[in-house]
Design a protein around this nucleic acid. Structure first.
Lengths: 181, 181
DNA sequence: CCCACATATATAGGGTTGATATATGCTGGA
DNA sequence: TCCAGCATATATCAACCCTATATATGTGGG
């Protein structure tokens, strides 16, 4: 699933600028299962535009770069459906947090404690965001299902950290550092 | 967390070849929270070798390329600890599956059904693998904690899919395709 | 009052993935 | 039995993507 397809997906929900598409991945409804950066979004929008899968409309702004508002064409809609029908790549998680924790026995207990604190806070914040954006208008079945899964998984993760952190801290004696300072 | 650090992490558990490191990310104990490909592992091992963070030992093999067995040096051990003490990058999930499902209302119900089937099977298989590798030898606190979290999260995900799939299928009428054909 | 942040687009540089190349033994289905 | 596909084992390249940076300015908190 390349960034071009991800952009088409966002645009299928309504017109948007590159900046707004970025926000959809940073904080919006796609944030818990896909991300994309400016460095890939802007070239992708140019390519989509060249292929006529999206249309551009420049909105002049005072003392700012013109806002380029993109909207999906019928051709783009067809291309999106085709991509959605293709076999999805296997899911992938990347977590420096879990990688680091898998070496917990070599780290100071205070450090492990702090990392878990931060991670729980992050999950709780994400959960508040995801649970908060309910209710306003009727949500279609797809987004509702996906959102529910995100909430269930995040809640499990946060609960696990809270339930098992003390045991982990207890088991890693502070004297087992690989390097003494 | 670049691939060099990930390789050091694998090597901290014992010497290994590039091929074996790849397997640790594809099916091994790191597979559910990090991945790395040959295209990044082999250059990373060369760089680590040049920096003397790992040592290489060539094992001649019959009618096969020599197996290069890497082992971590004390310098490498220090470098790993330093990396583990740095602030971790935020966790990220990439799931084409969830992206596609968030457009479920535009897809044929049979397709959605099939995708969920595949995904549940994938989770169950991963769970069997993760639960299976228990018991053999005493597992340190870090890996045990991380493994437990992976199991908890995967089980929640699989259970959610099984509990909510029928409702999703029921809600997406098959006549709402964006493209006929 | 100033620093940090939000808006808004764009690009260069560097890291990663996925596909491909090379070479061979083993195994399961036709 | 034969062959296709998979596992072992290393290596490289193009395509893709992320991080950091550049540019320009309004706004809000300390």
């Amino acid at each position: 699933m390349d960034v071009k397809t991800l952009c088409l997906g966002v645009l299928s929900r309504g017109e948007a600028s590159g900046y707004e598409i970025k926000k959809a991945f940073a904080e919006g409804p796609f944030s818990h299962f896909h991300q994309a950066s400016f460095g890939s979004i802007y070239p992708a929008l140019n390519a989509l535009s060249a292929e006529e899968l999206v249309a551009v409309r420049a909105q002049a702004q005072d003392k700012r770069p013109d806002k380029k508002i993109y909207s999906m064409t019928q051709k783009g809609r067809n291309a999106l459906i085709t991509s959605l029908m293709a076999q999805p790549a296997p899911d992938a998680m990347r977590s420096d947090f879990l990688f680091i924790l898998s070496f917990a026995q070599y780290l100071p207990a205070a450090r492990v404690d702090q990392l878990i604190d931060q991670r729980i806070a992050w999950y709780r914040e994400a959960l508040a965001r995801m649970e908060g954006c309910a209710g306003r208008e009727t949500v279609p079945a797809g987004p509702s299902f996906v959102r529910g899964m995100g909430i269930a998984v995040y809640r499990t993760a946060a609960d696990y950290l809270e339930a098992n952190r003390e045991q982990l801290i207890a088991e890693i004696g502070d004297g087992t550092l690989l390097v003494a300072e």
